[in-house]
Amino acid sequence: MNSSNARNVGIVIVSHSPKIAEGAADMVRQMVGNAVPLAWTGGDVDGGLGTNVAGILEAIETAWSPAGVAVLVDLGGAETNSEMAVEMLPEDRRARVVICNAPVVEGAVIAATESSGGSPLAAVKRSAEEFYA
């Protein structure tokens, strides 16, 4: 690791299922320990399967890094709600959050591994997206 943990690109995991989101986060931690800021969110506001914008905003805040945050999502609503959340961020943060077009579990682990080496946001996103391309 060539940079302190909190300065590496943050990883946010968004799944309809809180169990999947938490489990994917566990897999990330197993791979990179505390080398990257990490947060997960899943479920609708009542705790059922779904995603919610407030939870995503909170996760982005938790995983915030000056290097930016890469968001991994599962199905449609997770992506739409994540895009909505990014638009609601303060303007200076908006450009430093990317949503990766990658499978949520594999993408999160690969992105976090890339981030743990101190790579910039674009490289983190690319690593997640190219793995299955």
Binding site: V45, G50, N52, V53, G77, T80, N81
Partner: peptide
């Protein structure tokens, strides 16, 4: 609606 609906409908109808 954006904050509470949950599915993709929240951002779509909310927008």
């Amino acid at each position: 609606l954006v904050m509470k609906v949950g599915g993709a409908s929240g951002p779509l109808v909310g927008t």
